[in-house]
């Protein structure tokens, strides 16, 4: 695989994580019942949707180049990015158990990726 392919894969993961963080941020401000205006909530939601849309078309492009079961394990990067992203941006707690699960998932996905 070319380095361009990997750059695109990493970019797609970054888009997913960024998009999800915006979405969760939008939903959080809905849940806590504070006086956040609808527009203030709509903005992060729109950013989230925008990033997810970009990710979708990038992913469609990647999918046309390789086998699905080959491409999918690259999502292994996702849980790691998300662990850092969510704890930094959303102040979510990372318990040792959660790290344990994340690492298992990442290792599992990498093995799937390395397999023929």
């Amino acid at each position: 695989m070319t380095s361009g392919f990997f750059v695109l894969v990493i970019l797609s993961q970054a888009l997913v994580v960024g998009g999800q963080i915006f979405l969760k941020h939008a939903l959080n401000s809905t849940v806590d019942g504070s006086e956040t205006s609808t527009w203030k909530r709509a903005a992060p939601f729109a950013y989230g949707l925008g990033l997810m849309t970009l990710w979708f078309f990038l992913w469609l492009e990647l999918l046309s180049r390789v086998e699905l079961s080959y491409l999918y394990p690259f999502d292994a990067l996702g849980p790691l990015f998300m662990a850092f992203g969510a704890s930094m941006m959303l102040k979510e707690k990372m318990t040792p158990r959660l790290w344990c699960g994340v690492l298992l998932i990442v290792v599992g996905l990498l093995i799937v990726g390395a397999s023929q």
Partner: peptide, 9 residues
């Protein structure tokens, strides 16, 4: 690999 992912979840 799939089994390990399942374990992590």
């Amino acid at each position: 690999g799939i089994g390990i992912v399942l374990l992590g979840v």
